[in-house]
């Protein structure tokens, strides 16, 4: 089993010591960073610190040095975001800091995505994402989309203020097995339930797994509405999408 001392980057060691508290997460994160190269640890550190110019430069340098794009994405960018996600979940950092980290990840992904796209890496699945009707907030949704894309999902972003029909059309058009809806306002949350009802009315509810999230949304509310899953933050959104995809595969097997 890897030890904290096996992580060569001092900043990342300090981050793990200070912010990661669950034993299973300590073990997983230490294993991860003990395995990855010092260059990838540097990229992850730039993500955690929200330094977009550093992330941009180090990603370009790593590619120029011949490091595989997928390795940079998984072991550098996403590895960094995994610590960011835990810090956010535990309220060590808040949205401004997460936005800066996301900006850094975006800078790195700007170099990675075209390479992965050209290489035709197989998608983990297709997800339709949007903020519900009447709600123009998209920070959380955009973070989820970035993390989903980083995890290999194909995501179609419908933007904000999305009506029921638009959600239905997009799911049908792309044959998407997963739909993600976001709402920031308690006044617009009911529109998630209306959308789910619209899928039932259109006889399409069985064809799609629906996940919901947003600051005021809770597991209880998601259950009441008949959603298939609730994600508290961008990290849980990714694990939820993965488990929903497994369900889809199991059901169609």
């Amino acid at each position: 089993m890897a030890q904290l001392a096996d992580v060569t980057n001092e900043f990342i060691r300090e981050e793990i010591e200070e912010y990661i508290q669950r034993p299973d997460e300590i073990e997983r994160i230490v294993e991860l960073f003990a395995r990855v190269s010092p260059k990838m640890q540097d990229i992850a550190a730039a993500i955690i610190e929200g330094e977009d110019d550093v992330a941009d430069e180090l990603t370009q340098q790593a590619l120029a040095d011949g490091v595989d794009a997928l390795e940079i994405m998984d072991d550098g960018l996403i590895a960094g975001m995994s610590i960011v996600g835990i810090k956010f979940r535990e309220a060590f950092i808040f949205v401004p800091e997460v936005l800066a980290c996301a900006r850094a990840m975006k800078a790195g992904m700007g170099h990675i995505e075209p390479i992965l796209s050209a290489a035709g890496v197989e998608s983990q699945g297709t997800v339709i994402m949007g903020t519900v009707k009447g709600d123009l907030h998209d920070i959380g949704k955009n973070l989820c989309i970035m993390m989903l894309r980083g995890a290999g999902f194909t995501v179609h972003d419908l933007g904000v203020d999305v009506g029921e029909d638009t959600f239905i059309d997009a799911v049908e058009e792309h044959g998407a097995p997963i739909l993600g809806m976001s709402a920031l306002l308690t006044t617009t949350m009911p529109n998630m339930g209306k959308t789910i009802e619209a899928f039932i009315d259109a006889d399409l509810r069985e064809d799609v797994k629906i996940m919901v999230g947003g600051a005021p949304v809770t597991q209880e509310f998601a259950d009441d509405m008949g959603a298939d899953g609730y994600g508290k933050d961008a990290l849980s959104c990714v694990s939820l999408a993965k488990s929903l995809m497994q369900e889809v595969k199991a059901e169609s097997a």
């Binding site: 929200g50 949205v95 401004p96 936005l99 800066a100 900006r103 998209d138 920070i139 955009n142």
Partner: peptide, 10 residues
């Protein structure tokens, strides 16, 4: 919102 929050951090 996003720009304002980023400004507050930067």
């Amino acid at each position: 919102v996003e720009r304002f929050l980023l400004m507050s951090r930067d």
